[in-house]
């Protein structure tokens, strides 16, 4: 328990640089795919790249990779909750058109 506090994890500079490179590459990739047309996959492709970038930031820059299981659980919990926000909001948007429209 106390070891977690007195010995904070020190990440080698190399890892930071690698993460930085990944993020820059991801940004270029986003830019590049923005000019391609994948049809309905356009948004999923852009989102997939963004998720990878966010994951790298959370794991390495925010040190979640080296934390206790409890911390990981909390970090994951935040994302699960974000998904519920999306899911329950979209159940409104996706079903609005189901209603008959009376003129």
């Amino acid at each position: 328990m106390s070891s977690e506090h007195s010995h904070p994890h020190i990440t080698p500079i190399k890892i930071y640089l690698a993460v930085f490179a990944t993020l820059i590459a991801g940004t270029w990739l986003t830019y590049w795919v923005a000019y391609k047309d994948f049809g309905w996959l356009n948004t999923p492709v852009a989102m997939a790249i963004a998720i990878v970038k966010a994951g790298v930031v959370v794991l390495y820059f925010m040190h979640v990779k080296w934390q206790s299981k409890l911390t990981m659980l909390y970090a994951a919990g935040g994302f699960v909750w974000l998904l519920t926000l999306f899911a329950f909001t979209l159940q409104d948007y996706f079903t609005r058109s189901w209603l008959p429209v009376y003129e």
Binding site: T84, F88, Q91, D92, Y93, F94, T95, R96, W98, L99
Partner: peptide
């Protein structure tokens, strides 16, 4: 998971 009960007459889908 209940927040939509504030929005029954807001234009929210009836199914939601």
């Amino acid at each position: 998971f209940v927040w939509g009960h504030h929005m029954f007459v807001s234009g929210q889908s009836t199914y939601a």
